[in-house]
Design a protein around this nucleic acid. Sequence first.
DNA 1: AGAGTCACG
DNA 2: GACGTACGTGACTCTG
Length: 930
Amino acid sequence: MAFGKGCHLHLIDGSAFIFRAYHALPPLTRKSDGLPIGAVSGFCNMLQRYVEGNVGGDVTHVAVIFDKGSHTFRNEMYDQYKANREAMPEDLRPQMPLTRDATRAFNIACEEIEGFEADDIMATLARQAREAGGACTIISSDKDMMQLVGDGVVMMDAMKGNKIIDTEGVHEKFGVGPDRVIDVQALAGDSVDNVPGAPGIGIKTAALLINEYGDLETLLDRAEEIKQPKRRQTLIDNRAQIELSKRLVTLDDTMDLPFTLDDLEVRDPEPDVLLEFLAQMEFRTIVKRVSEKLGVEAPVIEETSADVAQDAPEQPPFDAEKYEWLKDATALQSWIDRIYARGYVAVDTETTGLNEMVVDLVGVSLCVEAGEACYIPLTHKGGTADDLFGNDELAKDQMDFEACLAILKSMLEDDSILKIFQNAKYDCKIFKRLNIDVAPIDDTMLMSYAMNAGTHRHSMDVLSESYLGHTPIPIKPLLGTGKSAITFDRVDVAEAVKYAAEDADITLRLWELLKPQLHKKQVTSVYETMERPLVPVLAKMEMSGIKVDRDTLSRMSNAFAQKMAGLEDELYELAGHKFNVGSPAQVGEILFDEMGLEGGKKGKTGKYSTGADILEDLATEHDFPARVLDWRSLSKLKSTYTDALQTHINAETGRVHTSYSITGANTGRLSSTEPNLQNIPIRTDEGRKIREAFVAEEGKVLVALDYSQIELRILAHVAGIETLKQAFRDGHDIHAMTASEMFNVPLDEMTSDVRRQAKAINFGVIYGISGFGLARNLRIPRAEAQGFIDRYFERFPGIRTYMDDTVAFAKEHNRVETLFGRKIHTPEINAKGPQAGFAKRAAINAPIQGTAADVIRRAMIRMDDAIAHLPARMLLQVHDELVFEVDKDAADDLIVAAKNVMENAANPVVKFDVPLVVDAGIGATWAEAH
DNA sequence: AGAGTCACG
DNA sequence: GACGTACGTGACTCTG
């Protein structure tokens, strides 16, 4: 078919696909010869997904366009063009020709031309398509391509869920239409491509100028008229450079191409060719998927020798039909025999929900060898998914619950059998409630966290996708959504077998893959001493829960409600009408439009910002913002704490059981959910009262132990600041000390205000301080804040050195480390955009926050044994604090024992130059104990 | 679903 | 007057 009206051309930016694939995937190698093929694998996955997504679509022509060579006509114009590009990574280079082969294997046109960038080829093709009366979609997120949009040409951003960027989208990005994009780019320049532009002018200013003068040429001709002197001079002085920049960013859409649009017609892949290529690359998962889609037999991929394949054992394809439905004790016994012959087993539980303190066990799946897994349904109901009031009789062909558990118990508790889980804490708690103490264990989620914290999350879906190239069967279609959702015990057993057994299968495969990598990445000791042992400790704490007094909360709730109602009336009065106080948008309108107050700033969504800092500034002059702040504070306390907390009181235990996430924070900190007990108020008196609802049982007390200034102590140690270390050894007030050093004020003449400022700086340093940030925090002029920082670094040069060294390490290794060897990855550290700034500060903070997290983890792991002889249990962890419940008369003993563990938690691995000090408090409530 | 806000260390 | 700007979290509410 000749390209013309009604035709639709897709142009895929090949380089973008490759780089995305390269960075998204771990460095995979071909098993037979070790050839790096991670990027090719991801590239093929993306092409396959692209092809699948277009079945039945209106695309008639398609091509993948690549860059060829690094020297283009733009380098002739300007030798610095793209000169700041980093060299291509070593393991990516050999993959480049393979991506071309892959494209051809998919039977998609593959084009590149020496001396031109892919962008120019795409520009030319887009113009040709437009002139022929057809449509064109450019699949790329490169903003350089935005000049092509309009008249039937759009862009599609594959990174952002195939978001379509049309003329309006271009306007959002550049503030001008597609026809003026190059004018804006010429002025703003581009640090990524090293296009100079006009110094000091960015996209915002550039768009402003272009919109005012119409186009770049007019602007430059009339530059003398610009009011702002600096801007005027910049444009006059840099005219040549700006004009050069425009030539650099302008795509050449008039190339002579050795092919025509007609050559790009969509062709179905030829199964033989495609599969042969994929098999040659040894992409087992894609081979399987493609052969299924095309309805042909998958080619056999040669087995590789065992010594090469050690790290990544040969994997049979996933086949849900092969999973076994265990129906009786005989069948189970034969699985138990297999497990004993192996010495390990992957286990997964299915339950009626996600809250492991409430839900019931529905079934158990086991896997001893990749591809071979079983599911033991136990309490599935007879009714089907459609049968809403389905009978509660048990479905057929299920083992007796007690009989099954009795058999499993002896295996799960057997020292000689390793039980492998993905997120072991969940399953261990389910079993613990059934009186089964699972041990020993391994946890693939924690392995992934130990190796790759910071690079990706660690859920089964993510791990399966990135390490096995397999998308697990989704649970949604089985359970449904919204009101009609059912629990797993109502899922048809045959379907449940496939889903549940697959989870065990995936877990086992992940374990086989990840376990040997722990050593290579040198995190075995992190995993074995700070991740895995935490599982039983946290499981026990979570199951203990903490007693929360419902009446106290309920009374507070009512009081808050009354106060809020009063404030609402006052606010309506002040505004002159009713409105929703909880709506920031409405509050903003009233403040800045209706009342006409100064200082209204609109964010990206076009709404006024009404955050506490802004309202606080206004509150000194006006009642309205002050009342809104009061209302918000009450609303927060009521909805998040006094109301929500009550719903979390467990009906059976009368206590609140949080769930800690071991992998929730990249730094090694825990996080707490449902409910979050790590953010219970304390900073205001009113909020602090919430802690009065956290109580000890009759005859017992709560004990709170917290590390004093642990992060600053760690900073003093790692940066080697003798003055600060000595101050800690002498037990001095560290903030006063800092103030004294910085401002040359003797300690006995210190004012609280000076101390407060020093404290802010001390904390700021831990966070990767900036003059702007400190200025905002202290509400002082920026220059003054910068002065403080300069003086701080002058006085403590070791801290500057530490920060520089840490950032340099991160840039070289893409990660930082804690003193205990925990690795925290900082993948954005070498990025070009503003992400790099965030990554830099995160890199500075991570070793400090992470080392503190490691210390308390070590304390928690040792705590069980240390307090075993006492009538006490550990209930909560709040980053630098542990909360215990203990018999009244044993409280003092507990404090001695627990304090000892905490203060010595770093030993013997790390010998701190500063003492770790722990403060203790006792009380009937958490408020008193703190 | 995402943004805004605010609670904690 | 390029941009944005202190680290790490989770829950609730409004809004499109």
